[in-house]
Design a protein around this nucleic acid. Sequence first.
DNA 1: CGAGTGATTGACTTAGATCAATGACCGTGG
DNA 2: CCACGGTCATTGATCTAAGTCAATCACTCG
Lengths: 197, 197
Amino acid sequence: MNAKDWLPAEIQSSGIARRLVAGQMLFDQGDATIGVYEVVSGKVRQVRVDPEGRNVVVGIAGPGEVLAEASLFSRTHDCAATAVTNAVVRLYRTAPLLAQLERDPRAALSFMATLVEQILNLRMRLERRSIPSARDRVRHYLTSNVGGRGRIVALPSTLKDLAVELGLTHETLYRTLAEMSANGEIARLNGKIRLVG
Amino acid sequence: MNAKDWLPAEIQSSGIARRLVAGQMLFDQGDATIGVYEVVSGKVRQVRVDPEGRNVVVGIAGPGEVLAEASLFSRTHDCAATAVTNAVVRLYRTAPLLAQLERDPRAALSFMATLVEQILNLRMRLERRSIPSARDRVRHYLTSNVGGRGRIVALPSTLKDLAVELGLTHETLYRTLAEMSANGEIARLNGKIRLVG
DNA sequence: CGAGTGATTGACTTAGATCAATGACCGTGG
DNA sequence: CCACGGTCATTGATCTAAGTCAATCACTCG
């Protein structure tokens, strides 16, 4: 996911920086694609909207991560991107980037690796959605996101967003977390959760 | 997804064919990866199993489609693959394939395109899982799979499998389809469904 | 023919959605 | 500075759609 891993220096420096305030939309679903974005600072949320108007968070990208890779091969964006916080992104236009990837096979391979990483990530999230019980779904999320030391999971943005990510209503998520907390399965510290099991 | 689109001829002909009988496992989750598989004939189902033993169908690949692309960058398989029908697959080993992709930038780009296609597909399925109502989920599936002429959707393998794909129990799927059929929203013809709306 | 599986329907239960209300917090503008 | 509007977090009460358990029929395969 990290741009430094696959973007050759000459392309990386050619990126066009753009500043976004919290809540500002970077592009909308259906917009014509221009290129690929790298998040320099802040967080950008990618959301798909289905015909009935429901939202699905496709992902939240933080510093160093890359947005809209799909636009290299597609004329329009299949999801919308909105800044969650104030943010800075850098745009790499499609044509030169494709040309560069064609010229530099190592970069192409690294880029393929980031795509594969996303596929694995999406599969994991799909797997999670197959879990019927809210409790187990939360546990699945927590165990697959423990960040190394201390069995601590940092929550991305708000609990409401997490509820959307898990495919639950926020009420159910609150209740489930409260229950797990009471059971001693987890400990809640502001913006973070520690697994105790 | 079609191997002919991205596999250079010399690699394509070097594939090692393997015959599978219905129900036979090609590889299991956790197995060491050997390479990428192309389905020549039949259907192969990829399934992830979570710690509690639930299954998630990651995808069903038919003739011309490619399996386990992820294994190019990963030591072990993150899902299991099993033949649904009698099938023939062709194996392309990791090392020579990677070398070839590095040598042939057009092939690399085409391969990237197949990866992106998968990402889009996974996102769509994730979006579907965010729909709470069984009826709407089925509708979402049908509308995103209408195959051009006649608003007809061909069902992959069995309805039970479709239920898993949709994240529903098979009972609920049967009932929902029966109800939609009664409403005149759909017409059922063996192995296929026609949208009437 | 019997075993195994898919398709289907019925009866019942329950977990999660829905509706609703409240308190905490934050930024903003008069 | 403080009142106000907005959103998040939280909890309660209620409802319902989907899950669970169960039985039957059709079909295929050895």
